[in-house]
Nucleic acid binder design. Structure first.
Lengths: 294, 294
DNA sequence: TATAAGTGATAGTCTGTCTTACCTAATTTG
DNA sequence: CAAATTAGGTAAGACAGACTATCACTTATA
């Protein structure tokens, strides 16, 4: 139906009257709407002036509806119930839907999963679904509430909000068996075609390490998810963010060859602009806090 | 259904979104609600924050609804249509209902009916129903929109609004055949038991005329409606407002004996407090103007 | 009769909506 | 292809309308 609000009374007056009719008095309506009875009385009088009819009549200590009042009260009650119901449905639905997170495998393994138990404990009701994707994969903020990606500090995320989670050095590392204990001759060793941070960044790193991207031997394990494992197994050098190799550096399965000075990676949470659902905010807050520790 | 408005978004945001969804954009919605597009955009964003979901998405030059938006738009549209319809129904019904007027017979005959044609002409759509009642008859502002009654200027109308229509002298008059051409001996003549202004006032008038209400001869024509006619026919003296006898004074069928100085009658329109329907206001305005001429 | 609970009325405060102004993006038109 | 038009985005300030506070008054209930 075509509704022309220009010749309709303010909605607040309708709401006040509806509550008055439903609850049987100004005082009760005032409590329900969290205002003073005087406010309700004013609104109802205003509505009466608008429709040019008496809607309530004083009766003893309370109020009674006039015929016109009863006639108006029923549809108003139904309509407001419908509105309220629609809002509630949407809200619940939003709150119930878990948090959809897209991460790079390695970042999830290195930084998120180890601490995720804490989040489960703190927010038992919130379901978080991870979808590991390659770092260069396009960012779909329609499907995902949060997309975690690594990039250079000055990366332009376009339309989206980007919240920096942690900064990591970029390093070159390899299995001890490959790189030995001292300085290694990087140009002579094979490189794992590390895709964790993107191809362009990878080539930049190789140049910064003093090698020619086109001249080196590249080893591609076939899947991005196997690159780190391939590095640990000694199939080649790994170039990438320190954070994703940290565990292996610690337990000795990888050894850092050099640090690419003047180069840092930033992992950010990418979100669509606009409102944020409560569970998303909860997870994001936790994520920011969790990453601060690294 | 029990609606708790304390955890529901402001209705203005819902109205703004509903219009946006129905009309397909902020600009169109703004035109419909008679505000600027910026106002609509703000309201919709506020609603999005409230329900924690994106409702609209920019698409080219215009907008498109998200899934959540579509889900919310349908019930809102229905509900607002219902509200709007209920208001419209009530308003039309109010406007269509004619004006119910209760008058005293004589006042209607003397002051209202002669000019009523003007009102018909000026307001062809408005139906006015007159219910002649005796002046002392109780005033029922529930059944009547306007009650016209005569009384002393200081009369207390209680709960109601009283709008003075015209002031009239109180006089004593009789048929020429009864009172002759000079001064008449009032005490010796019969009096019509004039009820047009009320019994108490009638007795007061007789005293003011120098007679004892208990000593005079009273002629009661049986019905208040016949009193004036009885006076014209010479059955007795009439005491009452000048206005209701004026026509007869003019055409010579009645002759004024004396004027009760210090006594005036006021005919007033009595209305219930509260809002006034448009046709009622129209008639009242006309009535006030019409009475000013007397 | 006292007390509590409700409505009626009004003046002043204040919150929230709206406007203004300027911007960018996408379409249409000369 | 540039100019014009139409749409939405954002921020600051103006303004209206809703609300509060407080009075008086009425009607139930103990």
């Amino acid at each position: 139906m075509n509704v022309d609000w220009r010749k309709s009374p303010p909605l607040t007056t309708l709401r006040a009257f509806e509550a008055t009719a439903r609850l049987g008095g100004y005082s009760a309506a005032a409590r329900a709407l969290n205002v003073t009875p005087a406010a309700i009385a004013q609104q109802v009088r205003k509505l009466e002036a608008e429709v040019e009819a008496a809607l309530v009549r004083r009766e003893g200590r309370g109020l009674a509806l006039t015929e016109a009042g009863q006639q108006l009260a029923r549809p108003l009650n139904e309509a407001f119930s419908q509105i309220f119901g629609a809002i509630e449905d949407l809200k619940h639905q939003q709150a119930a839907r878990g948090v959809q997170v897209s991460t790079t495998d390695y970042f999830a393994n290195a930084a998120v999963l180890p601490k995720l138990g804490e989040f489960w404990k703190a927010h038992p009701g919130v379901q978080v679904s991870f979808t590991p994707e390659g770092n260069p994969q396009p960012i779909d903020t329609r499907r995902f509430d949060i997309v975690i990606r690594g990039a250079a500090p000055n990366h332009d995320w376009g339309e989206c909000r980007a919240i920096p989670l942690l900064t990591t050095k970029m390093i070159i590392a390899g299995a001890p068996a490959l790189v030995g204990s001292g300085d290694a001759d990087l140009a002579s060793l094979p490189w794992i075609a590390d895709h964790t941070i993107g191809e362009a960044v990878f080539e930049d790193m190789i140049r910064r390490a003093g090698c020619d991207p086109d001249a080196i031997t590249r080893v591609d394990p076939g899947s991005a998810r196997l690159e780190l494992e391939a590095g640990v197994m000694g199939y080649g050098l790994l170039a990438g963010p320190e954070i994703i190799m940290r565990r292996h550096l610690k337990d000795g399965s990888l050894r850092q060859v050099c640090e690419l000075s003047g180069m840092t990676g930033v992992y950010s949470a990418i979100l669509a602009k606009g409102p944020m659902r409560a569970p998303v905010r909860a997870f994001l807050d936790w994520l920011i806090e969790a990453c601060r520790a690294y």
